[in-house]
Design a protein around this nucleic acid. Structure first.
Length: 435
RNA sequence: GUGGGUAUAGCUUAGUUGGUUAAAGCGCCAGUUUGUGGCACUGGAGACCGUCGGUUCGAAUCCGACUAUCCACCCCA
């Protein structure tokens, strides 16, 4: 296929027949975030490269090998955002939003870019919905964050398709202790670890814990657990989070292997994981990152949030028996024959559309029969045929496409009124919503 | 970056041991007389059989390379 008619590797089109899913989900998420008191923040697709190096972390795979980085004509290095948190945190600092009062609660919809091998539910351009909260250290904030994610899934009737995996990786102080213990333990098995895990041993030993290699995961089974090493403050914090989740009726599994791959995480980390949508099952992931703001040059300020993968969520919905509300079909199709009738059709359509009715007419120049076929194909609920007779009488027949039943309708000022009357009498709902 | 699978119309596929104009269903467009959709029928458009090279009198079919794509590892949403 010619290059110009081929999309770039790892990118996806949302086609007209599917866009309603995105629109529906975005609306639902805005409502849900709003009901928790989060306000939308919109940040640029690109940022200074340094922001991600500092914010996401120099040692991460994302920064080391997955960023779309390039120089502007002016010689500035900028990067297409690989995730949404860094930009939001930058904006918080740049505009000193924390002076508007704490906590700052924001949500975002962003497109993200990572240069990696494409896979089922993993793309080079992908979309995230996310929540951010700044200026609160309380476990209540962690619990609320998780509740917000859970309630989105509940509203979509997929709460039971996802399992919430929860963990605490402690603060930098207690993690240092833990790292020491981990390194000691894994060093004893140096000969058996896979190559990647050997390099992890130095820079991020926790990642060995979720290595998929049978040998490594066997060794990891007996490795020290974070939860045995976290300090009293961190333990108490974690207990607080669990207590409020329990109170909210949110079910979770404490999974010591959830460690997250971004450097900025501290204390609470969590993932909502789905089965049955391929290897990339993490639909939503997040946690607390109390060190991030300071890392970016601000005063120390606790922070937390999560990101939800839109493509993965849609994949999950597609693989489940949940049917998102199908968009309204055409309410009225006006077929016409001849110039006079076409003019009348345009006049009537202007009138009826201004009442909020979804209506169409022929813009192809088809025969009457073909127009009716088209009306049927687009699922029009009612149709009106206009010809010389109707123009003359200023009356036409309106046909219920489902029952075939016909009624008279005025073509003058009474048109919109008559149509609404017919619509009400038919008891026709514009769309059937069902699970 | 590493592995494995697959490439024939918009989609799903057929194509026999290599043999003349590459087939079907769905979809799309038009028509089945004069002013009414769904069903049915008729017709039409649409494929350089992923690309390049090789073997052969002859390749969609055999061989090679490349490219694309899918799945998995890695990593993550």
């Amino acid at each position: 296929m010619a290059l110009i008619t081929k999309r770039v590797y790892g990118s996806e089109d949302v086609l007209p027949k599917d866009s309603y899913k995105w629109q529906f989900l975005e609306k639902l998420m805005r409502e849900e975030a709003g009901s928790f008191g989060f306000k939308e923040i919109r940040t640029p697709v690109f940022e200074h490269t340094e922001l991600f190096q500092r914010g996401v972390g120099d040692t991460t795979d994302i920064v080391q090998k997955e960023m779309y980085t390039f120089n502007t004509k002016g010689g500035t290095s900028i990067t297409l955002r690989p995730e949404g948190t860094a930009g939001a945190a930058r904006a918080l600092l740049e505009h000193a939003i924390y002076n508007d009062g704490l906590p700052v609660k924001a949500y975002y919809f962003v497109s993200c870019y990572r240069y990696e091998k494409k896979q089922a539910n993993r793309y080079r351009e992908f979309h995230q919905f996310g929540l951010e909260a700044y200026g609160t250290e309380s476990p209540a904030a962690d619990a609320e964050m998780i509740c917000a994610a859970q309630s989105i899934f509940d509203r979509l009737y997929i709460g039971d398709r996802l399992s919430l995996e929860l963990n605490s990786i402690g603060c930098p102080e207690c993690r240092a202790e833990y790292y020491k213990a981990l390194k000691e333990y894994f060093s004893q098995h140096k000969g058996d670890l896979c190559d990647t895990c050997l390099s992890r041993l130095e820079r991020n030993p926790m990642r060995i814990l979720d290595c998929k290699s049978p040998v490594c995961s066997e060794i990891a089974k007996n490795a020290p657990m974070v939860l045995d090493y976290i300090c009293d403050d961190c333990r108490e914090h974690f207990e607080g989070v669990k207590r409020l989740l329990d109170a909210s009726g949110v079910k979770y599994t404490v999974n010591p292997k959830i460690v997250r791959g971004l450097d900025y995480y501290t204390r609470t980390v969590f993932e909502f994981v789905a089965n049955g949508i391929g290897a990339q099952g993490t639909v939503c992931g997040g946690g607390r990152y109390d060190g991030l703001i300071e890392e970016l040059g601000g005063q120390r300020m606790p922070a937390l949030g999560f990101a939800l993968g839109m493509e993965r969520l849609i994949a999950l919905l597609d693989s489940s028996d949940v049917q998102l509300p199908i968009p309204d079909t055409c309410e009225l199709y006006i077929a016409s024959m001849g110039d006079k009738a076409q003019e009348k059709a345009f006049e009537l359509l202007k009138r009826i559309r201004s009442c909020g009715v979804y209506a169409e007419t022929d813009i192809v120049g088809r025969s009457l029969r073909a127009q009716m076929k088209y009306a049927d194909k687009i699922g029009a609920q009612f149709s009106v045929v206009l010809g010389d007779n109707e123009i003359e009488r200023s009356r036409a027949e309106i046909k219920n496409m489902q029952t075939g039943e016909k009624r008279e309708i005025r073509l003058d000022n009474g048109f919109a009124e008559d149509f609404l009357q017919v619509k009400i009498e038919s008891g026709n709902k514009s769309a059937e919503y069902f699970k």
